[in-house]
Design a protein around this nucleic acid. Structure first.
Lengths: 171, 171
DNA sequence: GTCTATATTCTGATAGAC
DNA sequence: GTCTATCAGAATATAGAC
């Protein structure tokens, strides 16, 4: 539902109908609407974390950064609503529970650790990296949903970034 | 209203109350709720266009790019809801009217023309530029609203980008 | 665990008097 | 141009029978 109609189109009534239930029965499973968002938030982060953990990271910075960027932008491009829920603050009243937020922190730490392992350790560089990758993601979603206009720019972006932070050499 | 509570918090009733009107009287001014969004969309784009036109663009690429990036990221950081409305596809049912969309196209053309004037002419480079600048913007809004964590990275980002597209020389 | 029934409040929108 | 009155339906959520 959320994937098709956006994160704000979620209605407990429609969700219940989709699983052949009366809307009221959902309250057996979710304490509130935000609890549903919270579950989606947690699931999304778990999925991203799993992909990070499955990733075979090269020792060489450039191939490693390429793989990470492809992983993230693909994850983002797959599902606009999930991207909004996880990375944009688009539902003002929603805040993840501590348990769900902990998973998001884990994702962040994992990403950070991978980047550190290829030599990217400065806070500024990490922020610049996330800005670059999230920019490609959000532009892909907003301006070419379903296409690959910005996905095609990933390798070029990584080259630009690597040159900037690593200079001529490789670490 | 939208600025404070987000783009989805807009209700015609609350809007009417805010201007001391009965909700029904709004229909004298707006044919529908989407017409209100459309007005905001047009106003936002007009404002951005005006700022672009006011901008005194340097002949040198690097200072020019810095000024453009600062202009855009500042515009974005000022107002999360406006940014969502103009640049993210966060209201699924809303599509700007042809008249309003024309203003958005004008903004795009103006930005494109300014970048071309400092030597940035390839489509790919332009897309990479917008990804970088929108990445800084959306990260600033999502992770440090009201702060300057990503704004501080602008000059560094422009240096990285310029080096990549212009190489050693300046155009 | 699922249902019926219901509470409460909100939503966008229209008709027609003044 | 603004109002009153009203529609038709949406929303989240609770109480209590089975």
């Amino acid at each position: 539902m959320v994937r098709v109609n956006g994160v704000n189109a979620l209605s407990l009534r429609a969700l219940a109908r989709a699983v052949d239930m009366e809307p009221q029965s959902l309250y057996t499973y979710f304490a509130s609407k935000n609890a549903v968002y919270d579950q989606l938030f947690a699931d999304g982060n778990r999925e991203l974390l799993a992909r990070f953990e499955r990733l075979d990271v090269s020792d060489e910075p450039r191939p490693a950064l390429r793989a990470i960027a492809h992983l993230f932008v693909s994850f983002a491009a797959e599902d606009q609503a999930r991207y909004e829920l996880l990375f944009l603050r688009t539902i003002p009243e929603f805040e993840p529970s501590p348990e769900s937020y902990a998973i998001a922190v884990e994702v962040f730490s994992k990403g950070r650790a991978i980047l550190a392992s290829v030599g990217l350790r400065r806070d500024e560089d990490f922020d610049l990296w996330t800005a670059l990758v999230s920019g490609l993601s959000s532009q892909q979603l907003a301006n070419d949903p379903g296409g690959d206009r910005y996905i095609k720019l990933i390798d070029n972006s990584v080259a630009m970034f690597s040159e900037h932070v690593f200079g001529g050499r490789d670490s």
